[in-house]
Structure formats: structure tokens, C-alpha cells
């Protein structure tokens, strides 16, 4: 699947992004987000009761949407290979379990992951641009990105410059995303907003549009290194943004909540949110991902409970 980042001429977005002033005017002209209302809506959708066949379907869908992630200073090639094995066969005892969407690693471990996953269909995603802080010169960010792409990463998860965003320098954030997108070549670009540092939903909406206008293929909530990471209301606001962006430009952009999604119950709440906000078009791994590590085993545990009727203990699922 390839997505073209080019903006249709009739959407008027090229003109909007041409100057810092017009960009700022546009972002501040987006409808505001009422915090109480957004949180109420997310909480209400979280009360949906997903049972039986719907739950089975949701679990498999969630497994196939996982970006199985390891982003530790202590990561080793061995650890990455183990994670790749898990991603290709999440439950070694049950071949009907789908594989995950991608393995997400630091850029220096991309080559290792590419080797391990060759031919499997599981993607390799690399965080880049001086993840997680994004505090590095643009040249370093681009070099980081290029190296990951050269090593075979099909997806790049970049972080935005939150400092510039909060200071109101939207043009700087925009230009960085455009430059990274160019360095990505054919690789998909996921833009991490780090919503925990943006704080307000108005900022989340503006950052979402900024990233999409700059060519993001995906917008992603968080690095997982800042608390709060992904939340339902933040994801709701981002799903509204991709829905509105497609309505305006015709281009579909994916959404990836990451960090803090640990249980099947949580994952299903996100799927309900997608289904009833952006719509069913987004309910595929091509357009919705969940960045997680421990979530996968809980999904497997609930899946086995549904198929066999009994819970298996945690020792029956591999820790990788």
C-alpha cells in the first residue's frame, strides 16, 4: 500500500502552508475542542459492551494492528530477534492467530529486525529523529532517518519538535516534517505528536492537522516515554482530525495510539472509538495501529479463553 502525500490542488492546503502566518491562522481557526465534552464522549464510547463473536473479531483485529515495540537503552540484537519471532507467530501453539503489523525498534537495530522478518509480511518500523525528545539538529534527525530507511525500515516513527510547537513556531515543525518525509522516500511516515507534552486538546487537533498537511501517513499519540501517553479522548480528537482531513482533501491518514494500552479491554475500547468516530474504513492495520508491548500477551490470553472457555496462566504465553 502506498499513499501519496501530495495534496489535491482544490483543497487549498498548499496555499495555507505557504507562509508561517497563513499556517498559524489556519491552525488557530480550526474549531476548538471542549475538554469536558470530548472526555464525556470518549467515556461513553468506552461503555460499549463487546461480547462473543464481536469480541473474537476484535481480538484478532487488535493483534493484527499491534506495532510490537521495544525501545529500551538496553535493547540487544538478540532481544530484537526474539521480538520478531513473537511478532510472526504470536501464539506458537495456534497457527490461526494473525501476525502483528510491525516490529518497532530503534534505528540502529533495524537491520537486525529486517533480517529476522525477511519474507514474513511483518513490517519493520523504526523510531527516528532523535527519539524520544527530538532535541537534535535537523541534519542529525535526517541522517537518523536515512540510515533506518537504507537498512530496510518500511515505516519511520518521527517525533515533532514540541518546544517549537509550544512556542508557536508551527512553520519550523512543518518544515521538519516535510524534510523527514522527503528523507523517508518510499517508507511510511508516522508523526509522533507526544500529546502528553502538548497538554490541551486544541493543541492535539492543531498538531494533527499540521502533521497531516506536512505529509504524515500516520499520526501517533506518544513516544511511550512521557506520561500520560495514549488516552481515549486524545485518540478521539485525532480520529476526528483524520476524518475531517479526508473529507477535505480526499487523502486518508492513519492513527496510532501508543503507550499505556495493556489490556484487551483497553484495545477494544480503541477499536470502538475508531469504528464510531473515523469509521470502519480505518479498521485495518493499514490505517490503525496500536503501539504496545505487553498488550499482545493479554490479547492472546483472552483469545484462548474465548476459544477454549478457560483461562491459561501467564506461563503459557511466551515472554519476549
Amino acid at each position: 500500500m502506498t499513499v501519496t502525500p501530495t495534496i489535491p490542488a482544490d483543497s487549498g492546503l498548499a496555499e495555507i502552508t505557504s507562509t508561517a502566518g497563513s499556517l498559524r491562522g489556519f491552525l488557530h481557526g480550526l474549531p476548538g475542542v471542549d475538554q469536558v465534552g470530548a472526555e464525556e464522549r470518549a467515556a461513553r464510547l468506552a461503555t460499549r459492551s463487546i461480547k462473543k463473536s464481536a469480541k473474537a473479531e476484535a481480538i484478532d483485529l487488535a493483534v493484527s494492528m499491534v506495532d510490537l515495540t521495544t525501545l529500551e537503552g538496553a535493547d540487544t540484537p538478540g532481544k530484537v530477534r526474539a521480538l520478531c519471532a513473537k511478532g510472526m507467530h504470536p501464539d506458537p501453539g495456534d497457527a490461526s492467530v494473525p501476525m502483528v503489523a510491525a516490529i518497532c525498534v530503534y534505528s540502529d537495530l533495524v537491520a537486525e529486525a529486517v533480517r529476522a522478518l525477511a519474507g514474513s509480511g511483518v513490517g519493520v518500523a523504526s523510531v527516528a529523529t532523535s527519539f524520544p525528545s527530538g532535541r537534535a539538529p535537523l541534519e542529525a534527525k535526517l541522517a537518523d532517518t536515512r540510515r533506518a530507511v537504507e537498512d530496510g525500515a518500511g515505516e519511520i516513527d518521527m517525533v515533532i519538535d514540541r518546544g517549537a510547537f509550544l512556542a508557536g513556531d508551527y512553520a519550523k515543525v512543518f518544515e521538519e516534517i516535510v524534510a523527514v518525509k522527503a528523507a523517508c522516500g518510499q517508507a511510511h511516515l508516522k508523526v509522533i505528536l507526544e500529546t502528553g507534552e502538548l497538554v490541551t486538546y486544541d493543541n492535539v487537533r492543531r498538531a494533527s492537522w499540521l502533521a497531516m498537511m506536512a505529509g504524515a501517513d500516520f499520526i501517533k499519540t506518544s513516544t511511550g516515554k512521557v506520561s500520560p501517553a495514549a488516552t481515549l479522548p486524545v485518540t478521539l480528537v485525532m480520529l476526528e482530525a483524520v476524518r475531517d482531513f479526508r473529507a477535505r482533501t480526499g487523502r486518508q491518514v492513519g492513527v496510532k495510539p501508543a503507550g499505556g494500552i495493556r489490556t484487551t479491554k483497553d484495545a477494544i475500547k480503541y477499536l470502538v472509538l475508531v469504528n464510531e468516530t473515523a469509521g470502519p474504513d480505518w479498521l485495518t492495520p493499514a490505517w490503525f495501529r496500536i503501539g504496545a508491548s505487553s498488550l499482545l500477551n493479554d490479547l492472546l490470553m483472552q483469545r484462548r479463553k474465548l476459544t477454549t472457555g478457560v483461562y491459561a496462566g501467564p506461563d503459557y504465553f511466551t515472554l519476549d
Partner: peptide
């Protein structure tokens, strides 16, 4: 697509 099973 994602159909919610009855949850009475």
C-alpha cells in the same frame, strides 16, 4: 466489518 454482537 465490526458488528457488535447483541449484549442484552
Amino acid at each position: 466489518m465490526f458488528e457488535y454482537a447483541p449484549a442484552p
